[in-house]
Simulated scan of single mutants.
Amino acid sequence: MDLYQHFREEEYPYIDQVLSWRDEVTERYHSKLTDFLHPREQKIFQSLIGNEETLKLQFFGAWEDAERKRALLTPFYEEITAKSFEVELLQAKYPEKFVTISHPDVLGAFLSAGIERKKLGDITINDGYIQILVAKDITTYLISNVTSIKKANVQFHSIPFSQLLDSTNRWVENTATCSSLRLDVLIKEMYQTSRQQAADLIKKGLVKVNFQTIEQAAFLLEEGDMLSVRGKGRSRLKEIQGKTKKDKVRITFEKLL
């Protein structure tokens, strides 16, 4: 059976990468630690490696509901702990009475410092504190170079995972019946807009699927796909339940409040 038939063509290079990691660990008996992976990448990794009896695969993102996680692939006998993932939790306090800071503000500050997104995990903002999980090898650079967000001066420092703030992610589950799994159709259902408006958003490059801009309205979604529509928030296709008697597709999806 052709392995690639289960995946999208644009995912083939990543599949090749995962398979090369598998071969490397199997043949050389040493571990492979990845950068932070988004949920779709994690799902592909798990589906390709999950049943390998001689290997062990684990993910870590600090928060229980973390989206971005580092993956560690090891021989089955290796012990894996939180330290194995080589990450640090950074925290900074900001004056919430005088400035409002959002997730994009924090991410923008880090990216502006020249950091690649793949080196950064999830971000939580709660009660005047910002926490972000980062790859350990860039911690010193980040602390020195990210000293302001919007108009607020901040000073990040490393803290133990025991001080992890509660995640502020709140997902609300909904069900819907759609004519198909086309991107424009699902945006129409998930964001309560017209199909033409959905098509316009896609054409303007305002829609991402699994963190990649998609400009084809006919793009077909799969279970577990994450959607982001600029100005309208994020959602994910949680489950494809099957078809109705009228040949419609019944889905369960979640929206981030």
Score class of each variant (00 low, 15 high):
D2I: 10
D2N: 15
Y4R: 13
E9C: 07
E10V: 09
V18L: 14
V18H: 13
V18T: 11
R22I: 02
D23W: 02
T26P: 02
T26E: 12
E27C: 10
R28V: 06
L33G: 12
L33Q: 11
D35T: 07
R40G: 15
F45G: 02
L48Y: 08
G50Q: 06
G50M: 05
N51W: 01
N51D: 10
E52K: 13
L55W: 00
F59V: 06
F59R: 07
F60K: 08
A62P: 04
D65Q: 04
D65W: 00
A66P: 07
A66Y: 02
E67V: 01
R70A: 12
R70S: 09
T74I: 01
P75W: 00
P75L: 00
E79T: 13
I80R: 08
E88N: 13
Q91F: 03
A92H: 00
K93L: 03
P95H: 10
K97S: 14
P104K: 14
V106A: 03
G108C: 10
G108P: 07
A109G: 14
L111T: 04
G114Y: 05
R117Y: 06
D122Q: 02
Y129I: 03
L133W: 14
D137N: 14
I138G: 15
T139V: 12
T140G: 08
T140R: 11
N145C: 01
N145Q: 05
S148K: 15
S148R: 15
I149S: 05
K150C: 03
K151N: 14
A152I: 03
A152E: 07
N153W: 14
Q155T: 14
F156Y: 06
S158R: 08
F161S: 06
Q163C: 09
S167R: 02
N169S: 11
R170A: 11
T175P: 00
T177N: 08
S180T: 09
R182W: 00
L183P: 10
V185R: 13
V185D: 12
L186H: 12
E189F: 06
M190Q: 04
Q192E: 15
Q192G: 11
Q197S: 13
K204I: 02
L206C: 12
V209P: 09
V209Y: 07
Q212K: 15
E215F: 00
A217K: 11
A217C: 01
F219H: 13
L221G: 07
L221W: 04
E222Y: 04
L227C: 07
K232P: 10
S235T: 03
R236A: 09
K238Y: 09
E239D: 11
Q241H: 05
Q241N: 05
K243H: 12
K243F: 10
T244S: 09
K245N: 15
K246F: 03
K246T: 08
D247L: 02
D247W: 00
D247C: 00
D247F: 01
K248W: 00
R250A: 14
T252A: 14
L256C: 10
L257W: 02
